[in-house]
Design a protein around this nucleic acid. Structure first.
Lengths: 213, 213
DNA sequence: TAGATTGTTAATCGATTAACAATC
DNA sequence: TAGATTGTTAATCGATTAACAATC
């Protein structure tokens, strides 16, 4: 076991997928697995799996394989925070509302503690027990409730300004749904979900898949 | 100008981002740009941009740079279909409804021609002018309306079976929102949007970003 | 102990960057 | 024509795969 170089982006993006598979194995009562069995299941090489795990010092035992329990616990510890992450949603439109009601976030340890909108008609209503507040109360709320993540489900035109406000107020990371590359002066981690981009990639693949036949 | 080897996945995934920037340049009335200026704007090297474009034979003129008009038209032609893509949404829950109302898909040439659900209370209602139909009519509808893409915004437990049904019925690609890796017997292009995975990546980045300071 | 499978080092493959000749 | 900037070839970098010694 040894400390290795900084985890690469490629490996990091595979971690949630590992966690999904470990959860499934656990639920199915499987207690041990080898890198080659896991590779078969996940559609990747055994070598890559062992290489990935070695970034964390390795989770297995030579000659035996991996304990699913150890895999699951280790990956959870690596990816999640003990107390969970606190999340606010800014923009209670269709998408914001859908995300507020999306149960998988909560299951994974992401707790929605506040929702904000500019529309007076929405303010005061609740979604899944969380109140929609005026965007004016944003800084105030963040000052009073430690907030890890702000989900930005806003019109493109509003996104940059609101992103700067929450970053200044002390939010630690942004989950952005606007079709733009968000860059901030005050540097914090940002994850962009570009739905139209993904759909266009699919469209391109379809066009090419057809042509190949 | 020459036909080159098959476009790599990495380059392909950058194409929608190029299109976004070309659209913006056009809207701002900029008519020409060099690879170094574009690289600066997009946060990538001029070399990578020229290399990427060369997969399509190159869009520029030596000594001059690139015509924004040419860039925009070329990328649109590469990514989109003349008549647009036809899309159905399966699952009219919170997420499905939000996607049906999401204007950016339509702007990019993806037209929602049908919505399906199993819930009798929803059937017959319309979202943005599109009727919600019973899932029983799925095969029937696809047979009558050429359907490029099915968006799957369904419970995890339903996803696999419905995916197989639409693939069999002749849909050409799947846009899957369930937190699972969809594999089908009948091989067609699939794009997965794993929102929880992305959020976990953000969580991991936040944890590490904090530690580094 | 013998067999199995890891963790790690080495080899390969692919993607990005640098350099430069071609040419507008 | 001279200057600029492309398209492309070569060099570098990083990620994946293969091989194998360590060891349970």
């Amino acid at each position: 076991m040894q400390a290795k170089k900084r985890l690469s982006e490629a490996v990091m993006r595979r971690l949630p997928r590992y966690l999904r598979y470990f959860t499934e194995l656990k639920e199915n009562g499987i207690t041990k697995i080898s890198s080659s069995e896991l590779g078969e299941k996940m559609g990747m090489t055994a070598s890559q799996i062992r290489q990935d795990f070695s970034y964390f010092g390795g989770f297995g035992q030579q000659g035996y394989g991996y304990s699913v329990e150890v895999l699951y616990d280790s990956m959870k510890r690596i990816l999640l925070k003990e107390q969970g992450f606190t999340v606010i949603i800014i923009g209670a439109g269709n998408l914001g509302t859908a995300l507020a009601k999306y149960n998988n976030f909560h299951k994974r340890g992401f707790d929605i503690i506040g929702i904000f909108d500019i529309n007076p008609k929405l303010i005061g209503k609740t979604i899944n027990g969380t109140e929609i507040m005026s965007i004016d109360r944003l800084e105030d709320f963040i000052a009073q409730h430690e907030t890890d993540i702000a989900i930005l489900s806003l019109p493109r035109s509003e996104t940059k300004a609101i992103a700067a406000r929450v970053a200044n107020a002390g939010v630690k990371g942004l989950f952005n749904f606007s079709p733009m590359d968000l860059k901030l002066p005050h540097e914090i981690p940002i994850e962009n979900v570009h739905l139209s981009d993904s759909l266009m990639v699919l469209g391109y693949k379809i066009k090419n898949f057809q042509e190949e036949k």
